[in-house]
Simulated assay, not measured.
Amino acid sequence: MAAPNHAASTAMTRYKNPVSVLVVIYSRDLHILLLERTAHAGYWQSVTGSQEDGESLIETARREVKEETGIATSTDALSDWQLTNTFEIFAEWRQRYAPGIIHNTEHVFSLQVAAPLPITLAAEEHLNYLWLPWREAAEKCFSWSNRDAILMLPERIGR
């Protein structure tokens, strides 16, 4: 049996796109949904995920909301903040990206729900969820960009 061809296997590797969405899900009374990461217990965040080939950013946001929470929504219900953040990808996650990629560009969205509701977690991604008042949620986020988006939310929605 021939030895595997490293170059061929590398060429077939599917890397993540370093373009992602952050979706802050909130209720009318400004409770924010946070998800606890499976790979890092204690790391809380809003919905996040990488854009897939051929998807628009709004389609990515909609898909990630459905995959990570079970909430089915239309793209019309999502609000595109026209805000991007660029940050360094944590070293432990860089192998998911093509060699040399160390930064990600994140696009911020939000989704309002009537009230906090039960969530269906993607077990491979998240351990638990919480609905917290917006200031508490911002304090609990491990990501500066997520924290900042939550802190901007009241102004964004005119409160």
Score class of each variant (00 low, 15 high):
Arg14Ser: 12
Arg14Glu: 14
Arg14Phe: 02
Tyr15Trp: 12
Tyr15Thr: 04
Tyr15Phe: 13
Lys16Pro: 01
Lys16Gly: 08
Lys16Ile: 02
Lys16Trp: 12
Lys16Glu: 13
Asn17Phe: 09
Asn17Ala: 09
Asn17Gln: 15
Pro18Met: 07
Pro18Leu: 05
Pro18Arg: 07
Val19Ala: 03
Val19Lys: 09
Ser20Lys: 00
Ser20Thr: 00
Val21Arg: 11
Leu22Val: 03
Leu22Pro: 02
Leu22Gly: 08
Val23Met: 07
Val24Ile: 14
Val24His: 02
Val24Thr: 13
Val24Tyr: 03
Val24Ser: 09
Val24Met: 05
Val24Asn: 03
Ile25Gln: 10
Ile25Val: 15
Tyr26Thr: 09
Tyr26Ser: 07
Tyr26Gln: 06
Ser27Cys: 08
Ser27Arg: 09
Ser27Phe: 04
Ser27Tyr: 11
Arg28His: 05
Arg28Asn: 04
Asp29Tyr: 01
Asp29Glu: 08
Asp29Thr: 04
Leu30Tyr: 15
Leu30Ala: 10
Leu30Ser: 09
His31Ser: 11
His31Lys: 13
Ile32Phe: 11
Ile32Thr: 09
Ile32Ser: 07
Leu33Ser: 04
Leu33Ile: 07
Leu33Phe: 05
Leu33Gln: 07
Leu33Trp: 04
Leu34Ser: 01
Leu34Pro: 02
Leu34Lys: 03
Leu34Trp: 04
Leu35Asn: 10
Leu35Glu: 07
Leu35Ser: 03
Leu35Phe: 08
Leu35Val: 12
Glu36Phe: 10
Glu36Asn: 11
Arg37Lys: 05
Arg37Glu: 10
Arg37Ile: 00
Thr38Asn: 11
Thr38Trp: 08
Thr38Ala: 14
Ala39Gln: 15
Ala39His: 14
Ala39Ser: 15
Ala39Cys: 15
Ala39Asp: 13
His40Asn: 04
Ala41Arg: 11
Ala41Cys: 05
Gly42Thr: 04
Gly42Gln: 02
Tyr43Val: 05
Tyr43Gln: 11
Tyr43Met: 08
Tyr43Asn: 14
Tyr43Thr: 05
Tyr43Lys: 13
Trp44Pro: 15
Trp44Asp: 12
Gln45His: 07
Gln45Tyr: 06
Gln45Trp: 04
Ser46Ala: 10
Ser46His: 01
Ser46Phe: 00
Val47Pro: 01
Val47Cys: 02
Val47Ala: 01
Val47Met: 01
Thr48Val: 07
Thr48Gly: 06
Thr48Phe: 08
Thr48Tyr: 09
